[in-house]
Amino acid sequence: MRAGRTFVLAVPWAWLLLFLAAPLAIVTLIAVAEPADGVPPYRLTWTLDNLRLVATDPLYRNALGLSLKVAAVSTLACLLAGYPMALAIARAPARWRETLLLAVMLPFWTGFLMRINAWIGLLRDDGWINTLLAWLGIGRLPLLYTDAAMYVGIVYTYLPFLVLPLYARLSRLDPELEHAAADLGAPPWRVFLRIILPLSLPGVWAGCALVFIPAVGEYVIPELLGGPQAQLVGRVLWGEFFQNRDWPTAASVAVLLLVVLLAVPALLVRALRR
């Protein structure tokens, strides 16, 4: 019995030590190493130069600031689009619910890069959206390689990640609570603000985290849809690693990003408690 239990626990622990703790420790180790010519391109030392550079140089600070802004705006856009969507699915007739939910998940299985490819075709100067805009008399606009295209890509990719946990929460709310509030004379908007919204908050936070965190480190979408000005932190890290072959600086960017991601929820909790 004890031996079996020890084995069941030992395997995940060993796995996590090797594939989670060790890699993160090594990233920290390389962040304080010196860049060098050679394979691999670093020399193990103890220097804070890389971390100091990454924390103070405007290039990295702006990238981090821009990433947080893009992630926050995208999360908000996903929430504004996804909340009514999740609510509508939760309120749909029971026999449709499973199909509607499956339809939210289905695009996920068509390949992320494929969908980004479709957006490139749609957003191009001679693409369908511009043809439509010209036909409407608005005229053609540069869309691809702009911030707008990047936001569309992020919202499109991560919307399902917000809708699913939110739906899970909304579908479990007791409809009697709303009936009671309505019977006592609360108008629908008040029922929403006082009953539905507060009770759905755990789902809102879970969904927002699932959008915000990957969006902060996003590399592919700004690279393919955003213009050269969209230097998000994921792109900067990628550039340091693949183009500049500067592993210690790339590792330092990773450490900085990790520290910020750990700090954001802590700061949010403190701000909300006040």
Partner: peptide
């Protein structure tokens, strides 16, 4: 160690891909 195990198991869900990629590569190199 239950709390630590739970946190460690959930960590990859909230780690940005670029960090996962870089850290795994460095692990393999080392």
């Amino acid at each position: 160690g239950r709390g630590a195990l739970e946190a460690a198991l959930a960590a990859p869900l909230v780690l940005p891909e670029v960090i996962t990629g870089l850290s795994m590569l460095l692990l393999f190199v080392v």
